[in-house]
């Protein structure tokens, strides 16, 4: 039956995460400084509404790893918590694996995982293996599956020696690795990673990245990842969503991000012989007699490159996007400016 098969296909390609106009407002008490004000607030407390998420929409496909970027307080964690069923949204709708997260059905909670860096969800005083066993029981993971996955992940994360130690005796990096191990043993199909590598050294960061990438590739799980380490994002995600003050500024691939937010590219050129003055071609970032770095506007890249090739005997020439950190910084700055402009229009 063609109709049925078409439906099946539609099902396969259904997004795992589908978010429409999601909102969250927090009521925060206003605390003023000083004893007198503190005493006054005992009787009359003032509140302020903080719009943490102001209507974000996006969707994730199965197997997709997406970087979720934004400065502190942009609404990343709030969004992740709403999608994992921890916070009740104040507006909009989210579907994760076809479930409404805020209903917190057991089946939904079994199939998603939220991992937060620098936080501990394991039993502090128990050996890691006991915590894993507890997790297995709560998530109703089949015994055989559990042992197989535990063995495989233990090896991949190199945590074999840690399983018999109490969690409180582990270092930050070790704790994060067993945290990830425990969260993935139930085989979640959607992973929300909130700063999973925060505070970890480079080797540990790399190991965790590799593990996440392998897990997503093997299981087809969707991953939404926030991180302040751009290396995490560039290594794992092709697509990024940039959020600022609760609004989505950008949703697309990483290359598109720099196209959108920076008007420049960088040309690095090396020549045999002597370089003349280059200021007329673009902004000179660095120059010595045989090598230069130029910042050139995107429209003129081809022309400038051709000029350089024609004028000098070029030994090496590369055209690069600006470093991703700079692009992100630029994106946040533009977001800030846009907002100021809108606020200005609202209150002339």
């Amino acid at each position: 039956m063609p109709r049925a098969s078409a439906l099946c296909q539609a099902d396969v390609f259904m997004p795992t995460v589908d978010v429409l106009e999601l909102r969250k407002v927090f009521k925060v008490p206003v605390r003023e400084t000083g004893l007198r004000n503190s005493l006054r607030s005992l009787f009359r407390r003032e509140h302020r509404m903080v719009h943490a998420v102001r209507g974000v929409s996006f969707s994730l496909e199965p197997g997709e790893i997406v970087g979720f970027l934004g400065p502190n307080g942009a609404g990343k964690t709030t969004t992740l918590k709403m999608l994992s069923g921890l916070l009740y949204p104040d507006g909009g709708e989210a579907h994760v694996l076809g479930f409404r997260p805020e209903r917190r059905e057991a089946e939904f909670l079994r199939r998603v995982a939220l991992i937060m860096g620098n936080r501990n969800s394991l039993q502090w005083d128990l050996p890691v293996a006991d915590s894993l066993e507890l997790r297995r029981a709560i998530y109703e993971v089949d015994r055989v599956d559990f042992e197989v996955r535990k063995a495989a992940y233990t090896e991949m994360l190199d945590v074999g020696e840690l399983l018999t130690k109490p969690v409180r005796n582990l270092s930050l990096g070790e704790r994060m690795k067993v945290e990830i191990l425990a969260s993935l043993v139930p085989h979640p199909q959607v992973l929300f990673l909130d700063e999973p590598t925060i505070g970890l050294d480079i080797t540990m960061q790399k190991r965790i990245r590799e593990f996440v990438a392998t897990y997503a590739a093997d299981t087809g799980a969707s991953v939404l990842l926030t991180s302040h380490y751009m290396a995490d994002v560039t290594a794992l995600a092709e697509r990024v969503i940039v959020i600022h003050h609760g609004n989505i500024l950008f949703d697309g691939n990483l290359a598109g991000l720099s196209d959108r937010f920076t008007a420049h590219k960088t040309i690095v050129v090396a020549v045999a012989g002597e370089l003349g003055p280059l200021a007329h071609l673009g902004r000179v970032v660095e120059q010595n007699s045989f090598k230069a770095i130029l910042e050139v506007s995107r429209d003129e890249i081809a022309t400038v490159a051709a000029r350089l090739l024609a004028d000098y005997s070029v030994t090496d020439l590369s055209i690069e996007d600006p470093p991703i950190e700079d692009v992100i910084e630029q994106a946040f700055a533009i977001g800030e400016a846009q907002e100021a402009e809108e606020a200005g229009e609202a209150h002339p």
Partner: peptide, 17 residues
């Protein structure tokens, strides 16, 4: 401490847990 997040994340009734 914010660790209640992890209680809510578990697929069992939070009050029971």
């Amino acid at each position: 401490e914010g660790e209640f997040d992890y209680v809510l994340a578990r697929p069992v009734d939070s009050q029971l847990l």
